[in-house]
């Protein structure tokens, strides 16, 4: 493999290659290790990123489909809390069941029978 130091431009040219996404995976990891303790080299990358993003200025914006926003929020925040009717549903069912039992008891005369 060619060593970066053998190539023209040294680490500064590598910073441009890095910002352009031209480095192989191996070279990229190597460059990132080099970046870690080198604020000047980091500034090189940031400066390149600033210039290169101007290439996107003429790209027309496009509104993503509405469903994508929900998918993205679900992925980021986790599942949304259940809707309010689903939260009260167990209580509502319980209330209906209770009313049903009460009605059965009264209408069948069970209580009357027990008392008499």
């Amino acid at each position: 493999m060619t060593q970066i130091t053998d190539l023209p431009g040294g680490p500064e040219a590598s910073a441009a290659e890095y910002a352009l996404g031209l480095l192989s995976e191996e070279d990229r990891f190597g460059f990132e290790r080099q970046l870690d303790g080198d604020p000047e080299l980091e500034q090189e990358v940031i400066a390149w990123a600033g210039f290169l993003t101007t290439l996107t200025e003429t790209v027309p914006p496009k509104t993503p489909p509405a469903a994508l926003a929900r998918r993205i929020e679900r992925a980021a925040f986790g599942a949304p809390p259940p809707a309010i009717w689903r939260q009260v549903l167990p209580y509502a069912l319980g209330a209906i069941a209770g009313a049903g039992i009460a009605w059965l008891v009264f209408s069948s005369g069970l209580l009357v029978g027990a008392g008499g």
Binding site: V59, P60, P61, K62, T63, P64, I72
Partner: peptide, 24 residues
């Protein structure tokens, strides 16, 4: 910002479905 970023993703990948995955 999503229109600007989605526009860029669409421009690069040239496929709406893939661009949606990129935005995600």
């Amino acid at each position: 910002l999503s229109p600007r970023l989605f526009g860029l993703a669409c421009h690069i990948v040239d496929d709406d479905g893939a661009a949606e995955e990129v935005l995600e």
